[in-house]
Structures are given as C-alpha cells and as structure tokens.
C-alpha cells in the first residue's frame, strides 16, 4: 500500500540510485517491494541488472493501456520492477499528451497496484514537474525530494519548501506536509558541501529525512549493476542508506506485513 515517490526539482541528484538502493534495503528487511520507473531515461532497470537490451516497459506502452501485471519483472534481488521502457521523442510526446488528456490512464493502474496492502511501492519520477509526479503525489504516502549538497540544489530549497514542483495551489499545500528531503552526495572534506549541508539541516529541520555521504563505492556499485549493501555494506554511505531506510519505515507508520525470508513471496 505505501507509495514512496523519489522526486526532485533538479536532475542528476541520484534519485534513481537512491530509489533502487532504498528498495533493495527495504526488501532486505523483509518487505515486498515494487519499484516503478516513471523516468523516460529508463535507467532504473539497470540498477536491477536487467539486460540493457531489454527495453520493454510500462510507461512507454501506457497510451496503449497495457496490463501492468504482464510487465512486472522479478529481479534477482527479489524486488519487483516495472521498467519504464524505451521511448523516443514521439513516444514521450504522445505519453505526455495522453496523460494530460486522461490522467486516469495512469491513476487507474496505480490504484490497482496500491490495493495490495503488503506491497511497498517505490516510484522513481523524472526530474522537475511532470505529469507522472502530479498524478502520483496525491496517492503517495511520502515524497522524498533528493538534493545534492551543492549551491544549485540549495537554491531550489524554496521550491522544496512550498512544494511547487509537485503541483500548484491546494495540491502543493497538501503535499508539502508529505515532503521529505534526502541530501545526497555529501562530501565531508568539501567546504562548500559542508556549508550547504549545514544550511539545509538548519533550514529543513525534521523534514530532512536522510543524508548520504558521497562514496566512491556507490558509483562502482552502479557500474557493476549491484547494490551498495552488496558491494560495501560496511561503508559510510551504506550506514547512511540504512539510516535513511529506517527513517522512511518510521515515517510510514504502521509497518505492513513482514516477510521473513529474503526473496520469498
């Protein structure tokens, strides 16, 4: 049932990497997790070791109203995955027009997916405002805005605070309460990174859900198409990831049914 959206007004901040690793961490804790890729980059599948030649997916076929059940993949990590699917410019424009014309095209299958009370759904959304995010945000239990510890991310704090990138008016005001921030790529030895981190910590207060230290092993884990908790479970970033996952679980409130065995369904 819980839907956690990973979003950001800025691109290249590590949304997809964090979404994949948080999904993996939740799955290791016995949760049944479905990760859905709403980003046309179609990169989430690579984190889950899908072949690069596998280009089918859910969102790219959404105008044709596909049955999402037939497109769900069971990855080797145990996390279920709905890839976005490869698309081109025309496909992306058609998808945007279709969602603009008929939001129910996405809302209806999402309601079906979220009807499972024991399923944690992780949504990786494209950077900035998007049709997908505007449809998903009212359904979500939490929107995790990912920011980097740099100046340009800090400049976007007003948009984070008022939730304007989630929508406008009442929706933005409603969603601002569900918005949490994860600060990614903190470089403790960088003067500016420390300054931005401290400023955001002071400004966001309890809305700062997690802080992930910059770790070379994170990038190498992505390159190896593995998860950080597999490659470097004792690293600082792995510890930060575990704490962030714990904070997400705590914020979700009542824990859904746990599954004892990893990968068992």
């Amino acid at each position: 049932m819980p839907l956690i959206c990973f979003a950001s007004p800025k691109g290249g901040v590590g949304k997809t990497t964090l979404a994949a690793n948080v999904a993996d961490a939740l799955q290791r804790r016995g949760r049944r997790v479905l990760a859905i890729d709403f980003d046309a980059q179609n990169a989430l599948r690579l984190h889950f070791a899908l072949p690069i030649t596998d280009t089918s997916g859910f969102m790219s076929q959404l105008p044709q109203r596909p049955d999402w059940r037939t497109l769900v993949r069971r990855t080797s990590s145990g996390v279920f995955l709905l890839p976005h699917g490869a698309t081109d410019v025309r496909g992306a424009l058609n998808l945007a027009q279709a969602l603009d014309r008929e939001p129910e095209l996405l809302a209806a299958p999402m309601r079906e997916i979220l009807a499972d009370p024991n399923l944690v759904v992780i949504a990786d959304t494209p950077p900035g405002a998007s049709h997908a995010l505007s449809i998903l945000a009212p359904m979500s239990n939490m929107v995790c805005a990912v920011l980097l510890a740099d100046a340009t991310s800090a400049a976007l704090v007003p948009e984070i605070s008022n939730g304007s990138f989630l929508g406008g008016g009442t929706i933005a005001n409603l969603m601002a309460g569900r918005l949490r921030v994860i600060l990614n790529g903190i470089e403790p030895k960088s003067r500016l990174s420390r300054a931005v981190s401290e400023m955001l910590t002071r400004h966001l207060g309890p809305r700062l859900l997690g802080a992930i230290c910059r770790e070379e092993m994170m990038a190498e884990a992505v390159a190896a198409q593995r998860f950080l908790l597999d490659v470097a479970p004792g690293s600082q970033a792995a510890l930060d990831l575990q704490e962030t996952t714990t904070a997400i679980e705590a914020a979700l409130g009542a824990a859904p049914e746990l599954f004892a065995a990893r990968g068992a369904m």
């Binding site: 690579l46 070791a49 899908l50 072949p51 690069i52 080797s76 600060l183 903190i186 403790p188 910590t201 700062l208 997690g210 802080a211 992930i212 230290c213 770790e215 070379e216 092993m217 190498e220 992505v222 390159a223 190896a224 198409q225 490659v231 470097a232 004792g234 690293s235 600082q236 970033a237 792995a238 510890l239 930060d240 704490e243 962030t244």
Partner: peptide, 30 residues
C-alpha cells in the same frame, strides 16, 4: 546472481583491486 552484462563490461573496466570503502563513523552523516 550476477547479471550477464554489466555496465563495467561496456566500458571495459575491471576492478583489479576494489577500493577500500571509507570507514564509517559511529553515527551517520545526518
């Protein structure tokens, strides 16, 4: 358990000696 294709293969990079991860501090970054 290992994918048949990894991004490392595409860039012909092999990790001869995996880098040592930074030792975590007792508390997290946050």
């Amino acid at each position: 358990a290992v994918p048949e294709f990894t991004l490392l293969n595409s860039i012909q990079a092999a990790l001869e000696s995996p880098p040592v991860a930074a030792r975590p501090t007792p508390e997290g970054t946050l």
